[in-house]
Design a protein around this nucleic acid. Structure first.
Lengths: 235, 235
DNA sequence: TCATAAATTATGTATTCGTATAATATAGCC
DNA sequence: GGCTATATTATACGAATACATAATTTATGA
């Protein structure tokens, strides 16, 4: 059997081409394919992970020539970064907005409200459609990745908002050492990151008793659990 | 430039070989290399992920010929499975032992003791050396993997012990619906899975205030947090 | 209108991947 | 002491990989 390249060369000689022989050049869609690439890459990376999907496959999913990915993003790694920062930036922004709103309300700060403000944008995103769900999956992957580059990316995207929430929690919990609050913030992140993934698995974990748990029910349960842990006496 | 294969062929013709030309055959070590492969693969998969490391690289890390991996494990996937089940089985076993001990003590069941019995083996493993730490990392990766095969593997390794712990928790918390306990068990898994990874990151998250947190301190903090959440009123 | 820049495709290249197989030296058994 | 199953190596193969480049068409602006 011939390799693809050989086959293509033969076809070129014979003048036979399977595809309608789209000639190169600049078509009508002026750069709009960039977004299509980002969308396809987001889902592909979420499903298979960074090393699990090829640039070629992403191009095919996006319905785009492979070279175009290099044209817009240069390397695979840069494509990944842009995918991640695109939606991660929106998420952090949303968190800041909700926290502002809470602080400006003038009411006394309640731990459960702070926690809910942190989780709500993430949950809304997850349930906003295929892209949001894919990004949630992608986040979960990135948080289990020990590589240096992944660590820097996480830091860049999330650090500022996490620190701000820790500050506000410290304000609401003046009796707790800041060190304890920081640690518990990590516990919180771990909990929701795990729940983001794939709720199907939870059913398995508990013999199918968690069927039909709605988005809001899940969020309420998480907030109650985490708020109790956050406010408890340190050991 | 020539490909490796071509170079090797030329060397063979000329009779020049870089390596001392280890002839094939059965050496002294009678199958002991299998363990070396498993050890090297455990660390490699933890660092890079399943698709991030090649069978060739694993062979090199293990100091073993590449073909030997296929001899013992047939496929890359089977190698991964054996790596995972080897230590995962020990872990589940250890959990069962600690729970037995707790139940046989005759003392009234306390939520924090049950939680500690669940976490202790995982923590001991993580701090037992390089291999244990690598396996912890590997677990974290597998739990963020949505692929069908990963799901089955997790289920096979952990399901029985998780279910048993949920049962015992339900016994200690008769006022809580079982559905709530199951859900909270997932929260618990998420929390410790996240903390398993890489404590270095936590320092970043909280402006370096978590330096010098010992193994026991971390475990105590997690138990306190999780026990409070587990016993709290449902929303 | 015409030159230039931008967007897109086709094609190529060297490397690496998982898997396959044949050759061979030793251990253990009769 | 010879036979056979086992452990190990060397080598090969075709597909897939990330990255590269040249050709080409269109949009834009002077």
């Amino acid at each position: 059997m011939d390799s693809k390249a050989t086959v293509a060369a033969e076809n070129a000689v014979k003048g036979e081409k399977k595809k309608p022989a789209r000639k190169p050049g600049r078509p009508k869609n002026n750069g709009k394919l960039k977004e299509k690439i980002l969308d396809a890459a987001e889902i592909a990376f979420a499903e298979r992970g960074y090393t699990g999907i090829s640039v070629r496959d992403i191009a095919e999913r996006a319905g785009v020539n492979q070279g175009l990915i290099r044209y817009y993003f240069d390397t695979k790694e840069q494509l990944f970064d842009e995918v991640y920062k695109r939606r991660g930036g929106l998420l952090s922004g949303h968190r800041h907005v909700l926290l502002d709103r809470l602080l400006e309300s003038g009411q006394p700060l309640q731990v459960k409200d702070i926690i809910r403000a942190y989780l709500q944008p993430q949950w809304d995103l997850k349930y906003s459609g295929e892209a949001g769900a894919a990004f949630a999956q992608l986040q979960s992957r990135l948080h289990s990745e020990p590589e240096e580059h992944a660590l820097r990316l996480r830091k860049e995207v999330y650090d500022a908002s996490v620190k701000r929430y820790v500050d506000v929690l410290a304000q609401a919990l003046p009796n707790l050492p800041r060190r304890t609050i920081g640690l518990r913030m990590s516990f919180l992140v771990g909990t929701y990151m795990f729940m983001l993934n794939d709720l199907g698995r939870i059913e398995d974990l508990t013999e199918g008793k968690i069927h039909n748990l709605s988005k809001d029910e899940m969020l309420d349960n998480m907030v109650a659990f985490l708020a109790a842990g956050m406010q408890s006496d340190p050991p």
